[in-house]
Write a protein that binds this DNA or RNA. Structure first.
Length: 294
DNA sequence: GGTAGACCTGGACGC
DNA sequence: GCGTCCAGGTCTACC
């Protein structure tokens, strides 16, 4: 079974996949040898399917091994469209960026879309898993979480979906610490799963909320484990670019780019991108640093 | 409101 | 082998 989903041009699946590290976090999978890009999705009816996503002339195709119903096809199409930002329009940003040599590549390569998970719950957990750890640690923790708590495709225990809030909520901090090895993040993730599962916190409504970005930010900041860096990352995934994902890497890059290697503060990083207004988060993210950080 | 210090883990590094 | 440091931060107590 193969679905075809249109994307607003210009579009590049390669640019979405490489927009950040998410393609390396389970249940995404990017095969370095074949180039195959896939995601294991659990549908609302709890059916678990592997989606193989490829670029086609006007968008993407999604290959599913087994037959699916029309309702399931619609759910998959909506999920993939969200994950790849197929409806997103960056023409205003492209126009603004013309003439800036450090951003001259973005329109040519159709950059701007940032790969995201089907749910904000999954992206929030993954963002928490990026904090205060090496990237290899983030990959390990996400993989263990999926392996330990995710629903498998029938007959294939190696392919599992991202766990639902209820599955994690039923766990406990000891298990998350000692078996999933999430460290001090265990309590953050357990609290979030329990709040979402109980309905205390309706996280998913923030995906298409009419609230001002400041209100969305406040709501996300109320999550334990989500601070300034994490909230900026989540806002960027939601399509709000007025905050910068200032982490230790950003400080190093801006220091090298404009301050001759001298230490800089988060305020100075903000100032460096102030001219890009509501697009500054994306300008920072897509900036050609051409400095490898070594 | 600003800022030390603690926090899990695992890989890199020096000895 | 072993100890130390620290990585794509955040929270809390304290001032």
């Amino acid at each position: 079974m193969k679905l075809e989903i249109a994307a607003k041009p210009p579009f590049s699946l390669h640019s979405v996949i490489h927009s950040h590290g998410w393609a390396r976090l389970a249940p995404f999978n990017l095969d370095d040898e074949t180039g195959e890009f896939s995601y294991v999705l659990e549908l609302e009816n709890q059916r678990v399917l592997k989606l193989i996503i490829e670029e086609i002339p006007d968008g993407v195709s999604v290959e599913i091994e087994d037959p699916i119903s029309k309702v399931e096809a619609n759910e998959i199409s909506e999920a993939v469209a969200w994950m790849l930002g197929l409806d997103q329009d960056f023409s205003e940003f492209y126009e603004l960026a013309r003439g800036e040599s450090k951003l001259e590549h973005i329109e040519r390569e159709a950059q701007g879309r940032i790969l995201r998970s089907p749910t904000l719950f999954e992206d929030t957990i993954k963002t928490i898993l990026t904090t205060n750890t090496a990237w290899s640690g983030t990959i390990r923790m996400a993989n263990t979480l999926v392996t330990q708590f995710g629903e498998a495709i029938p007959g294939d225990d190696t392919a599992k979906a991202f766990p639902n809030p209820d599955t994690i909520a039923e766990s406990d901090e000891k298990t998350l610490r000692e078996e999933t090895r999430l460290g001090y993040r265990s309590s953050y993730i357990l609290n979030l799963a329990r709040e979402v599962n109980s309905g205390t916190f309706d996280l998913e409504t923030l995906k298409d909320s009419d609230l001002p970005v400041e209100k969305v930010r406040d709501s996300l900041l109320s999550i334990k484990g989500v601070g300034n860096y994490a909230v900026a990352n989540l806002l960027m995934l939601l399509g709000h670019y007025s905050y910068l994902t200032i982490d230790s890497w950003a400080l190093k890059m801006v220091s090298h780019e404009w301050y001759g290697g001298e230490p800089v503060t988060p305020t100075e990083v903000e100032q460096a991108f102030e001219k890009w207004g509501d697009w500054k988060g994306l300008a920072y993210w897509l900036w050609d640093w051409s400095y490898d950080g070594e």
